[in-house]
Nucleic acid binder design. Structure first.
Lengths: 107, 107
DNA sequence: CACCCCTATGTAGAGTTCCGATACAGTGGT
DNA sequence: ACCACTGTATCGGAACTCTACATAGGGGTG
């Protein structure tokens, strides 16, 4: 897990049933295309993400076809877990924290 | 900012006045030494962290001297801000659809 | 038509970072 | 002699990010 990957997963989890495409995710995450697309390809390789080309005629629509990405069932579960783990590992300052350490066990 | 750096900062912010040393931070963060020490050196270079050798006689103490790290005044402020920004950028992957029913396709 | 900006996906390469392996040095146990 | 433990630290390959750039078509302006 890296921060860009986490941003992509978070964006996809906002509305897991919604179809998302690259440029859309670039705007949502603030990531440049050179970061986003490799991330999307890696997530597909891991089986977390599935993709399909939009079924339009680019000429008639007046724009290039989009490639729609959506989390697989496995992806939704894994992504939720991964983000929860990440958040648990990075509390925002102060507050007690277990870490990896065995806290002084109360009697 | 990367995740390992964030973990180190979070660990140091738990008790900003407390003296922390490498092995201690390894256990708190779960990071291997090959990751942790370069991070600590980078944070020192950035002025967020200061370090001093523990003033003990290793022979008498029966263990190697520790190198204590603590956040500078600037470091505390910057670290808090950085972690807050990171948390804001990675919202938790939860959304309404609570439980078994899908929200997307009403019958 | 040349020129630029827009949508949209994607690659190339340089630089940065991570982490397993390894090193050093001393204590203590069997 | 050998291993386990405390403690700090580096090396080098793999992985990742991100600035450019590439492609390819639409639309507008001079």
């Amino acid at each position: 897990m890296t921060i860009p990957v986490a941003k992509v997963l978070a964006a996809l989890l906002v509305e897991p049933d919604e179809q998302r495409y690259g440029l859309d995710l670039m705007r949502l995450t603030g990531l440049p295309s050179g970061t986003l697309y490799p991330v999307l390809h890696r997530l597909q390789g891991a089986g977390w993400l599935a993709a399909d080309w939009e079924a339009i005629d680019p000429v008639a629509a007046g724009r290039p076809a989009r490639r729609y990405y959506r989390l697989t069932a496995v992806g939704v579960t894994q992504a939720r877990q991964a983000l929860a783990d990440l958040r648990a590992a990075i509390p925002d300052g102060r507050r007690s924290w277990g870490g990896t350490e065995p806290t002084g066990a109360p009697a």
